[in-house]
Write a protein that binds this DNA or RNA. Structure first.
Lengths: 224, 224
DNA sequence: AGGGTTCAGTCAACATTGTTGACAATGATG
DNA sequence: CATCATTGTCAACAATGTTGACTGAACCCT
C-alpha cells in the first residue's frame, strides 16, 4: 500500500490514480511554481486530458487536501519518539516544517487546510501521547498541542508563502534589506540603524529561535 | 477631498482614488468574501468601469499591497507606548492581530506581503525602539522583533485563512470537533479522549496562550 | 484665449482558469 | 453475448486579469 517503489508511471496517458496525480502535482509545482498548478498543465504533464482528473478528484479543493495529507505523511516517515519529551515535540515540529518546506509552493496553499485524514490523525495522536507521558494533564496537553501545531503550521505556511512569492517577484525578498536601508534616519532611527542586521536573520534561524522561546515557556508550565 | 462620510456604497462613477478603492475593497470582501475581490465586482460597487482601477493600481498585486498597508495603519491608530516594555510589545502584537482579523478575508491575502510602506515602517520603528529602551542590544532587538512580528503575521494570517475558508465550506471549521470524535479509539486513544476538549479552545485563546509563552521566553533572555 | 499634453474613465477583446455534460473505449459481470 | 460501471476525451461555458484604442475633460505654457 505504501507507495515505496515509485516506478515510472509518468508519461503514459492511461493508468491515472490519486498517487500518480499527487506526484505530478508536487513535481510540477516545484519546477514551475504554484501558479502552474492548473488542471490543464497537470494533464499535459501526465499526457492525459485535463478533465480526466475529475474522475479521481471531484474538485480542485479535494486535490489540494490530498496534497496536504501527502506532506504530513512525508513528515512522519521514519519517525520514532525519543526519550526526552521536549526533543520529541521539537522533532515533530521541525519534521513538519521540513516536509512542508520541501515543496514551498504546495505548502503555501496546503498549510492552512485541515485534512482530517490518516496522516494528520497520526500526527495529532503522537503529539498528544508525548505530552501526556511527559506529565501534562489532558486539558493542558490539548492546549499545548494546539499551540505547537498551529505555531508550526502558521509559521511554516508563512515562510512558504514568502518563499513562493520571492521566487517570482524578488522585490519582496530584498525588500527587507533595501527598504530599511532607505529608511529616513530622523524618523526611523532604530529601523535605519538595524538595517544591516535585518536581512542577516534567515527564516530558519528565526523559526528556531521562536520555537525555543515557546518550548521554554512550555517547560516552565510543567506541573510538579 | 477625503470622503469621510462614505455612507452610500454606490456613489458617483467619477472621483476615484486609492483611498476610495481601498474602502470599497474592504467593504466588498467583508460582505461577499475574499473571492468576490475581482476588478469587475469592485468596479460594479463603485459604479465605474472595472478597468478604471488600472489608472490607480498597475496591478492587482499593487492593490493588495495597498490593502495590507491600510490594515497596518489601522493597527497603529491611537496607539501610545506604555511604561512596561512587555505590555507595549504585547499591545502592538494584539493590535496588529485585531486590525487584521477585523477583515479576515483581506488579511488572509495580505498578511504574507511586505509592503515596505509608511505604516509598516512605523510599526517596525516602534517595536525596535521599545526593545532597545528595555535594555536589549541592537542585534537582540532585531532578532526578537522578527520573532514577534513574524509570529503575529503568520499566526494571524493562518487564523484569518481558516476563518475565510470556514465561512464558505464550514466543513473545515467543524472538522476539528467531528473528526476527532470519530477517531477510532484503539488506534488514536489520546486524540479520541481529547475530542471534547479540542473545539473548546478558540483561536483567540490559543493565540494569547502562545504569545504569553513567547514573551516568557523573551523575558528570560533579558540581559542584566 | 488657443493649442497641445496629460489624466481618468470607457469599451471591446484576448488568453486562461475551473467546471460540466455528452460521448467513446475498455474490462468485469451476468 | 449482452450489460454495466469505470475511465478517459472532446467541446463548450462563465468568469478572471490584463491590454490597447478611443473619448472627454482639465491643465499648462505661450
Amino acid at each position: 500500500m505504501a507507495g515505496t517503489g515509485t516506478s515510472a508511471p509518468r508519461q503514459r496517458a492511461k493508468g491515472l490514480s490519486r498517487e500518480v496525480i499527487v506526484d505530478a502535482c508536487l513535481q510540477l509545482a516545484d519546477e514551475a511554481g504554484g501558479s502552474a498548478l492548473t488542471f490543464r498543465r497537470i494533464g499535459q504533464l501526465l499526457g492525459a486530458d485535463p478533465t480526466a482528473l475529475y474522475r479521481h478528484f471531484k474538485d480542485k479543493d479535494e486535490l489540494l487536501l490530498a496534497l496536504a495529507d501527502r506532506l504530513i505523511g512525508d513528515a512522519l516517515r521514519d519517525f520514532e519518539p525519543g526519550p526526552s519529551w521536549r526533543d520529541t515535540i521539537k522533532d515533530l515540529v521541525v519534521r513538519g516544517r521540513r516536509a512542508y518546506l520541501a515543496h514551498p509552493q504546495v505548502a503555501a496553499l496546503a498549510a492552512v487546510r485541515v485534512t482530517r485524514q490518516e496522516s494528520e490523525m497520526q500526527f495529532i495522536e503522537t503529539m498528544l501521547s508525548t505530552l501526556r507521558q511527559a506529565g501534562f494533564g489532558r486539558d493542558d496537553a490539548v492546549r499545548i498541542y494546539r499551540a505547537c501545531a498551529d505555531f508550526m503550521l502558521a509559521w511554516t505556511g508563512f515562510g512558504a508563502a514568502l518563499k513562493s512569492l520571492g521566487e517570482k517577484s524578488e522585490a519582496d525578498n530584498r525588500a527587507w534589506a533595501e527598504a530599511y536601508a532607505q529608511a529616513p534616519a530622523d524618523r526611523f532611527p532604530n529601523a535605519a540603524a538595524s538595517a544591516a542586521a535585518m536581512p542577516g536573520i534567515s527564516d530558519e534561524e528565526n523559526f528556531a529561535f521562536a520555537l525555543d522561546l515557546l518550548l521554554d515557556g512550555i517547560e516552565a508550565r510543567l506541573p510538579g
